[in-house]
Simulated scan of single mutants.
Amino acid sequence: MGVAERKNREREARERRITSAARQIAEAEGWSAVTVRRLADEIEYTQPVLYSHFKNRDAIVGAVALEGFREIKKVLQHAAQGPTDSRHAREDVAIAYLDFARDHPALYEAMFTMSTDLQFAEADTPSELREAFQVLAAVVPPSCRDVDVATETFWAALHGLAQLESSGRIKHGTRLARVALLVHGLFE
């Protein structure tokens, strides 16, 4: 192993420590508690070391968001592999999406509501975002006139439901009925 490989591995390990600490603090205390100074204290590095990895806090949030997109992609893929019936696959993916948002509120917030430099639906959209989108698109019926628009609408509806659920503004006991109505209304 060369020196460059070792240094690269060490750099990646530091970045993982930074993003892991950011996630832990955010899950426990909210994103307002995540500051560069706090992260430096948590992982016992100086602030300049953190800035050598990330240009600012938004970049750290962006790195956490990318982790979230890798994770949600796996969750949604697993949900889509269950039933052979396409309607049930869409419902299972929708429920998995909502469960992910509920179970990882700070991570979901980093992915969808926090300020980051991540570009959605652009030429330079990171692969993690595109791949997660493609998992949603895979359960959209190919008969849809525009699968991308249908997928964006499905995603937007799921995001709205996730936000309303997390704020307690809709009944929790009717989630399955809402998901069935969403899938039926959009795709059948």
Results as ranks from 00 to 15, higher is better:
L186N: 15
D148V: 07
A180S: 15
K55W: 06
L136W: 01
G173P: 08
T174L: 15
A150N: 04
S127I: 02
W31K: 12
A94K: 08
A123S: 14
E91P: 00
S32M: 07
S32L: 13
V135M: 02
A28W: 06
S52D: 13
E42N: 12
T151S: 05
E5Y: 01
E131D: 15
H88L: 15
T174N: 12
Y108D: 06
H172T: 15
S52T: 06
S20M: 02
D117N: 15
H172A: 15
T153K: 01
R16M: 11
H184Y: 14
A13D: 04
H184T: 15
N56V: 08
R37W: 06
A65M: 03
L107D: 06
E12T: 13
W155I: 00
H88P: 00
H159G: 10
R23T: 08
E15L: 07
A80M: 05
D99V: 08
L129M: 04
A65D: 03
Y97H: 05
I72H: 01
T125H: 05
R57P: 03
E165P: 00
N56L: 05
N56W: 05
I170A: 12
G62M: 07
A13P: 00
I25F: 10
L186F: 12
R90K: 09
A63Y: 04
E188C: 13
R169M: 14
S86I: 11
K7D: 06
T113N: 14
T151E: 02
G68K: 00
V149Y: 11
A21Y: 05
E67W: 00
C144Y: 00
T153F: 02
V75M: 01
R175L: 12
F133Y: 06
R38Q: 15
V34A: 11
L182R: 05
S86R: 14
A59V: 06
V61H: 12
A22Q: 10
G68D: 02
E67H: 03
S166G: 13
Y51E: 04
R175N: 01
F154K: 07
Y45P: 00
G185T: 13
H159L: 11
G185K: 14
A79F: 01
F120P: 02
R178P: 02
A21H: 03
D117C: 08
P126H: 11
A162Q: 05
G82E: 11
I170G: 10
A26P: 11
S32H: 13
L181V: 14
A132E: 00
A26D: 13
F120E: 13
I25S: 08
T113I: 10
R90W: 03
V93T: 09
D92A: 14
E27Y: 03
T174W: 07
C144N: 02
V3R: 10
D103N: 15
L182T: 07
E122A: 15
P105I: 01
I170K: 05
R11G: 04
F120M: 07
L39I: 12
T35V: 13
T116H: 09
R9C: 01
P105D: 10
M114Q: 15
A63Q: 01
E29G: 09
D103T: 12
V61Y: 13
E188V: 12
A132C: 03
E128V: 03
S32D: 14
A110M: 11
V75Q: 02
R6L: 08
A132I: 01
A33N: 11
A13L: 06
R17V: 00
R178F: 13
L164D: 10
